[in-house]
Amino acid sequence: MAGSIQSLERAAAILRLLAGGERTLALSDVALTLGLAKGTAHGILRTLQQEGFVEQDPVTGRYRLGAELLRLGNGYLDVNELRARSLMWADDLARVTGESVRIGVLHQGGVLVIHHVFRPDESRQVLEVGSMLPLHATAWGKVLLAFDPVAPGELDDGLKPCTPATLTARADLDAECARIRAAGWAGEREEAVEGVAALAAPIRGHRGAPLGAVGIGGAIERLTSDGAFPGTLVAAVRDTARAISRDLGAGIY
C-alpha cells in the first residue's frame, strides 16, 4: 500500500484486536499477536491512551478500548450483528453437512452460543441460543483458546472433567491448542458429552482479529470415521468460517 503510514496501520491493528468484545489484553499479548516488538507496541498503546482510545487498568496494567473510542461509534462487533451476517452461511453449512450448526463467542469464561441452526432432518430440536459451552471441552472453546489471546486467561485454574475424554491437564490443552493453530480447526471427540463429536474453525475480522467460532456438532458415528474427521466435513466448516470472515472484512488468509 503506497503512501500508508505504518504506525497508523499498527495502531489500527491494536484497536481492532482490543475490539473483539469486552476484553483486556497485556502488552505482551498485543505484541505477540501482531508480531510487533514490545517497545513498538508500548509506544503506540501509550499514544492511543493519551488520545483516550485505549485505557489501562491501574491494577493489572492490562489494556482495553477507551471510552472516547466507544463514543466515536462502533465500539466493537455486536454479537447480534455477527449473527445477522452469518445467517445465510450457517444455513448452508447445516444443509451441506446435514448437522446442526452453532456460532459461539468468548463470554465470561465460556463460549456463548449466539446462533444455532437445526440439523435439517425435522427431528425435534431445541434452540440453544444463549446457552454456554465449556471453553476447554468443546471444539468452539478450543478454537477460541487457540486463536484468541484473551481466552486462555479466562480459563478456570482447575479444568473440570465433563467426560473421561475431557482434557484436564493444562499441558495437554496447550499442546492441543498448538495443534489447532497449525491445522486451522479444532475437533472434539466426546470431550463434552458422551457420544457427541464436533468440529469448529475461527471467524476473524479485520487483520485477522479473532471474533468467534463456527462449527458443527452431532453423533460421533456420523461425524467421524475410524476416529478421524472426514476431509469433506473439515472443508465445509473451514469454508464457512472463511466466508463469514470475508463478509466481516477479513482479508484472504
Binding site: D91, A94, R95, H116, V117, F118, P120, E122, Q125, V126, L127
Partner: peptide
C-alpha cells in the same frame, strides 16, 4: 420445507 430454527 426444512426447519432451520423454531422458537417455542
Amino acid at each position: 420445507w426444512r426447519r432451520a430454527a423454531e422458537w417455542t
